[in-house]
């Protein structure tokens, strides 16, 4: 379990430091697979746990990366990430956030102990990294990927409280994320067709 979480942290740093969009998409896919396996590692082979894990794995590990790959192919954009904040600074911020999450978790522990003491800090770091990618990257496609990482973080935190949450709700949240990504995908397609680029630099006309 801890190995999987450490891999998750490494994937987050990869997302912050990598400059090629295809590799970002691949890494987000690996994250999805990890998140699908995590509940089984944490709680064993129970029916409900298997359902949550496998559906998460299918949606986050297979469907999302496939949709993003398609968006990338159709858009035929350059593969450069185009950061607003440099890769080195992004990585440094990532480390700081990880440290802050560790401190926070030590300060305010969960009332009921989670399956691994690394789970909560890693989840918070993923949330923060996702938010960071949304605001600090220019391309709309990368922002959508950032949203996925953000969702992954929330999902990981959800694992800490999985024994308390009913299955229907997990399914609903997953479904919502799926539709969100679909709608974003369609919007991305239109952005690309209208502007001939996926950069949000041209989405700056509306202001006061």
């Amino acid at each position: 379990m801890d190995t999987a979480l450490v891999l998750l942290i490494l994937s987050l740093f990869w997302l912050l430091g990598s400059s090629s969009i295809p590799s970002l998409i691949r890494v987000v896919g690996y994250q999805g697979v990890l998140l699908g396996v995590l509940p089984i590692l944490a709680y064993g082979f129970e029916r409900e746990v298997l359902l949550v894990g496998l559906s998460g794995l299918a949606v986050k590990g297979l469907i999302f990366p496939w949709l993003m790959q398609r968006a990338l192919r159709e858009a035929r954009v350059t593969r450069e990430v185009e950061p607003l904040v440099s890769y080195n600074l992004s990585l440094l911020l990532g480390v700081l956030v990880l440290g802050a999450s560790l401190v926070f978790t030590a300060e305010i522990p969960l009332p009921a102990a989670p399956p691994s003491h690394l789970l909560v800090p890693v989840a918070f770091t993923a949330v923060a990294v996702g938010l960071f990618l949304v605001v600090a990257r220019k391309k709309a496609l990368v922002q959508a990927l950032g949203y996925l990482v953000f969702e992954n973080g929330i999902y990981a935190f959800g694992l800490a409280v999985l024994p308390h949450a009913p299955l229907v709700i997990e399914a609903g949240i997953l479904l919502d994320a799926l539709v969100a990504v679909l709608v974003m995908g369609i919007t991305l397609f239109h952005i690309n067709r209208t502007f001939d680029s996926l950069s949000t630099e041209r989405l700056v006309q509306l202001k006061d």
Binding site: V134, A140, Q143, A144, Y147, A180, V183, M184, T187, H190, I191, T194, F195, T200, R202, L203, V204, Q205, L206
Partner: peptide
């Protein structure tokens, strides 16, 4: 058109 598209993207995200 491009302005409504910009608004939609901001709204969604």
């Amino acid at each position: 058109h491009h302005r409504s598209l910009e608004a939609t993207w901001k709204y969604l995200l």
